[in-house]
Design a protein around this nucleic acid. Structure first.
Length: 297
DNA sequence: TCCCAGGCTGCTT
DNA sequence: AAGCAGCATGGG
């Protein structure tokens, strides 16, 4: 039986779909012929940038489209967010001028947590590869249109909790396998309720996330920002640390507490957005200007 | 061959 | 508390 298709135009100004889906916050999206396809809330969906916004195509009964608006955060007033950035910061303003339209997504907490547990000391292309293997092997198939290859949802905590460490290692995740397995078991057993973290303040939610083995400050901040939408969460990975030191500390070594103090005082209420602009900017535009990694010549 | 990747853990000082 | 090796796997 041919699945019924639904399409909609989501009107939105200043939304760069490519930058958003390529900026290292979500790992399950694939592009072909200028259209992105992925799975949101258990539904296959295809997204295309059009003149006045985003055109979406899906199958099966979608009722309303709020699940997609929520994921894409199309209701966010980007101009207001960018306007809250420090105006005297020429580095950040350059990143904004370069990447304007880059957005933060609002992802499902389990998928986001699991993905970032897999992210430590991995390149983005490899994280994508691991996530793809997990979906194909253990995820629930989703309904796709005729002529589209089979697609799978990210496996739930319940689906991963019953696997063996060897099953997971076979997806090339190496030493991260026991971390992912333990996290899935904690969530599946009900020991921790990820949905309930949304009601906590950011400090408490961060503490809860860091109770997962394999989750430290950086991964916790990623989940706080990309899944729960805490706007001040500011993940500091090797790239962001490098750019902060280079731009704001003249390349001189900075200890963690001082860096954290600077972030809180300098970037303001939407620090998380600022972080994403800096991250994407240096990775796509300004990588050559950056100081070499520690230890390099 | 070597260094590095959207880091974290556990063991040393 | 602060520094550091080890950890799997693949890319450049």
């Amino acid at each position: 039986m041919k699945p019924k298709e639904f399409t909609i135009n989501l009107p939105v100004q200043e939304y760069d779909l490519d930058a958003t889906l390529l900026s290292g916050q979500a790992f399950g999206w694939e592009v072909s012929a200028a259209a992105w396809s992925g799975v949101v809330a258990g539904r296959w969906v295809q997204l295309r940038q059009v003149a006045r916004g985003i055109r979406a195509r899906t199958v099966a009964d979608s009722g309303d489209w709020n699940w997609l608006r929520e994921f894409l955060q199309t209701e966010v007033d980007l101009a207001a967010v960018l306007g809250s950035f420090p105006k005297e910061d020429e580095h950040l303003q350059r990143a904004v001028a370069c990447c304007r339209g880059l957005r933060l997504l609002r992802q499902e907490p389990w998928e986001c947590l699991a993905s970032f547990i897999l992210s430590s000391t991995k390149q983005i292309v490899q994280i994508r590869q691991i996530v793809r293997l997990l979906r194909e092997r253990f995820g629930t198939p989703v309904i796709v249109p005729d002529g589209i290859a089979a697609e799978y949802a990210f496996p739930t905590a319940a689906q991963i909790a019953v696997l063996s460490e060897a099953d997971l290692r076979a997806c090339k995740m190496g030493f991260r396998a026991p971390y992912l397995l333990a996290a899935a078991q904690r969530v599946h057993s009900g020991e921790i309720d990820l949905a309930a973290l949304a009601a906590l303040d950011v400090t408490e939610a961060r503490r809860e996330l860091m109770r997962f083995a394999g989750v430290g400050e950086k991964i916790a901040d990623c989940v706080l920002l990309f899944a729960y939408g805490f706007p001040a969460a500011f993940p500091v990975d090797v790239w962001v640390r490098r750019v902060l030191v280079d731009y704001y500390f003249r390349g001189r070594p900075v200890k963690e507490p001082r860096l954290r103090r600077f972030i809180e005082q300098h970037f303001g209420a939407n620090a998380g957005y600022a972080q994403q602009y800096l991250f994407h900017f240096i990775r796509t535009q300004d990588s050559k200007r950056l100081s070499p990694p520690a230890g390099a010549a």
